[in-house]
């Protein structure tokens, strides 16, 4: 966490000022105290609300502060801040509303395991089938959004394993999504929120969520 913050602090993107936000989702360890010690911008959830609600809270914060762009990034070292400019460039050029950092375009950096890639591929195809979005790295959580997209995300963001479903949502809302190549690392600490046992459950749940959401949004016009 501290090393990520240091990297973020040193980070400069042409024409942007960056304001990193940390959110403690009611961790039982001393995360919150640590954040206070580091003297950074942070939010502290009163109860555990899970990944979706917490990421959405970040969007609510960005919306409230009137930021032009919001970036979400895994805190476990998978997403190197030095690649950030690649995500922001299409937003600055107004080429897209949402930019997703992808490992699979140029196939450089950490590529994940075969099994995981299979899953990611499956969601890619599901998204393509549902909304015609061709996002290769469908589960990537390294994403940047403009104001228009932030507004939509404050309205709705999926609860659990939100990444693939968010693509369905944003596409249905008419957002332009662009995928850019970034180099990712292997996570240096912590475990993925997607573990072995629950993989099948995860796949089914995300698929159903995506399909239900799509049908709901289609029927509401």
């Amino acid at each position: 966490m501290a090393s990520l913050y240091n990297q973020l602090q040193m980070l400069k993107v042409e024409g942007c000022s960056i304001s990193p936000l940390f959110i403690n989702d009611n961790s039982t360890d001393a995360t919150c105290e640590k954040l206070m010690e580091m003297n950074v911008q942070f939010l502290d959830n009163p109860i555990n609300i899970g990944i979706g609600g917490t990421v959405q809270l970040g969007f609510m914060y960005a919306f409230e502060k009137g930021f032009d762009f919001a970036v979400q990034m895994d805190g476990d070292g998978q997403h190197p801040p030095k690649e950030l400019h690649k995500l922001l460039q299409p937003l600055l050029n107004s080429e897209a509303d949402v930019v997703i950092g992808s490992r699979f375009i140029d196939k450089v950096g950490f590529q994940s395991s075969t099994l995981r890639r299979l899953g990611i591929n499956f969601f890619s195809h599901l998204n393509k089938f549902l909304v015609g979005a061709s996002i290769k790295d469908s589960t990537s959580g390294y994403r940047a959004y403009n104001k228009k997209a932030i507004f939509e995300l404050v309205e709705y963001y999926p609860d659990e394993y939100p990444e693939p479903e968010a693509i369905v949502y944003l596409t249905n809302k008419g957002m332009q999504i662009k995928e850019v190549s970034v180099v990712m690392n292997e996570r240096v600490m912590g475990v993925s929120s997607i573990r072995q046992f629950s993989t099948i459950y995860y796949m089914i749940k995300v698929s159903l969520n995506s399909i239900f959401l799509h049908l709901k949004m289609r029927s509401n016009g």
Binding site: F42, G50, G53, M60, Y61
Partner: peptide, 23 residues
């Protein structure tokens, strides 16, 4: 509803005390 409440509380906490743990 609970999720929404928790999010609002987190934002309120930040606004009122500007970064402290617990309420």
């Amino acid at each position: 509803q609970i999720k929404k409440l928790a999010q609002e509380i987190a934002l309120l906490k930040e606004r009122s005390s500007n970064g402290s743990c617990k309420v």
